[in-house]
């Protein structure tokens, strides 16, 4: 499968739309790209990949809702707090809430509660997305 922008891995398996945004799942597997080095003999899904899961899913949602050619980038990780690790065999579920900025159509705030299948909170992530209109390659 070809990609449209550089990513460390395909960090989203499934997206289910909700009224607030989406519920996103990613099953952690030992041969996920980059995991072999994080860490050898003791694989853990890197915390930044949980951010990547939230980012890829919310980016896709916003791009699909705006004009064709719209591109979304990450403006800021406002906050992220990692509470528990994810290891191969775990499943990450990110409950993502997307809030359009009422004052700026080029900004979308994403608040995500990330959990493991056992219910443990894995991370809380708040992202600020920047929306570029078609033709804007900045």
């Amino acid at each position: 499968m070809t990609r449209n922008y550089a990513v460390p891995l395909d960090a989203v398996d499934r997206v289910e739309l909700t009224t607030a945004g989406a519920t996103v799942t990613k099953r952690i597997v030992a041969d996920d790209p980059y995991i072999e080095g994080h860490y050898p003999g003791f694989p853990i899904y890197p915390g930044v990949f949980t951010v990547e899961t939230v980012y890829q899913a919310s980016r896709g949602l916003v791009e699909s809702r705006r004009e064709p050619g719209t591109r979304v980038t990450l403006a800021e990780v406002r906050s992220v707090r990692f509470k528990a690790p994810l290891r191969p065999g775990d499943e990450l579920t990110a409950e993502c809430e997307l809030r359009d900025d009422p004052d700026d159509i080029s900004r979308v705030l994403v608040v995500a509660e990330c959990r493991r299948k056992d219910g443990a909170t894995v991370a809380k992530v708040t992202l600020d997305l920047r929306v570029h209109e078609a033709g804007d390659h900045a």
Partner: peptide, 11 residues
């Protein structure tokens, strides 16, 4: 723009 080094890896 598609070849931007991923933000997560920058972090």
């Amino acid at each position: 723009s598609s070849f931007a080094y991923p933000s997560s890896l920058l972090v």
